[in-house]
């Protein structure tokens, strides 16, 4: 079961869109996006490439204008003078990140810091050290990964209340991806709001409070990560000290693909592990191995299986 997508107005919503629609000439970019992201939430915005993620994000910062519908960030229209002033409170990482000129990284970051009214220099050096970014390098010499690090440092350096990150981990090596997720957790603990897009659920499942899925320009589902976990399927393997009868486990709620060979039981559990654990406790358990639930599989099977009425979104 899915929780209906929150469509109501939240008083402290940092991002609020209503019926947000974008067409490029005749071509669909995004249709009828109504979404509210409250202060302090980390929202993962998921979907395959070309689904409308970047279109949404570019409308949030007013580089492209909606065909229909409204956007409010901190309660103001990004297109107004108040909206422009609000951008001081936003850290933005573009999906298509590029720089101009031959500046050193430090000079570029200083320029961006000044544009936002100044940043304590130690914030920049701390972030740069964290991501192992050399501030003395020149922009044209940067690799894809290093450019992405510059993008992350500039997005976080002024400790913005809202972070809008388009595919933040693209180009980062796995170690730096972990560092980034750690930074997101700290950001969340500090009460900052994050709106990040990704085409991989695995990337946001440990950092996000909620995830929304866009597909072909429509938001098809919004879920809390915990409720997703409840529906998650996981493979479980239990080793006993002797043979166990199949009948003891067959027919338990949520159990599927049950196989018992000698001392070993293997099955697929949907939802809580409790019935299986209680049943197993009647025997002597040597080992219990449970795989991490694959949220991506769960999420995708769910949303491909049921044709969710996009109107709820």
């Amino acid at each position: 079961m899915s929780t209906p997508v929150a469509a109501g107005t939240t008083a402290d919503a940092v991002i609020e869109t209503r019926g947000l629609t974008k067409y490029y000439h005749r071509q669909r970019g995004l249709e009828e996006l109504t979404l509210s992201v409250p202060a302090g939430e980390v929202f993962g915005y998921l979907g395959p490439n070309g689904a409308g993620k970047t279109t949404t994000i570019r409308m949030l910062i007013d580089v492209i204008r909606p065909t229909r519908g409204t956007v409010r960030l901190f309660g103001v229209d990004p297109r107004t003078a108040a909206g422009v002033a609000c951008r001081r409170r936003i850290g933005y990482l573009p999906g298509d990140l590029a720089f101009e000129g031959r500046d050193r990284v430090s000079t570029l970051l200083r320029f961006l810091a000044e544009s936002r009214g100044g940043v304590a220099w130690h914030r920049i050096t701390t972030l740069a050290e964290r991501f192992e970014l050399d501030l003395d390098r020149r922009i044209p010499e940067l690799s894809k990964g290093n450019r992405q690090k510059v993008g992350l440092v500039q997005a976080f350096m002024h400790e913005p209340e809202l972070l809008i990150l388009d595919e933040p981990t693209s180009g980062l090596d796995p170690l730096m991806q972990q560092e980034f997720l750690e930074l997101i957790r700290e950001t969340r603990a500090a009460g900052q709001t994050v709106f990040m897009s990704s085409h991989l659920l695995a990337e946001v499942q440990h950092a996000a409070d909620r995830v929304g899925i866009v597909r072909e320009g429509r938001l098809v589902a919004v879920e809390r990560i915990e409720s997703l976990g409840k529906r998650a399927k996981r493979h479980v393997e239990i080793h006993f000290d002797g043979e166990v009868p199949v009948e003891d486990f067959a027919g338990l709620p949520g159990i599927g693909d049950l196989q018992v060979h000698g001392n070993t039981l293997r099955c697929l559990v949907e939802g809580m592990l409790d019935p299986l654990v209680k049943a197993a406790a009647r025997h002597t358990v040597v080992d219990l191995i449970s795989t991490e639930p694959d949220l991506e599989e769960t999420f995708l099977s769910y949303y491909y299986a049921q044709e969710v009425d996009p109107r709820v979104a």
Binding site: V63, V84, C86, Y92, F99, L112, R116
Partner: peptide, 14 residues
């Protein structure tokens, strides 16, 4: 052309 305009306009620069 360089795709850097988004980055500029995401600052408080109208």
């Amino acid at each position: 052309d360089l795709h850097v305009m988004d980055l500029y306009l995401a600052n408080p620069i109208s």
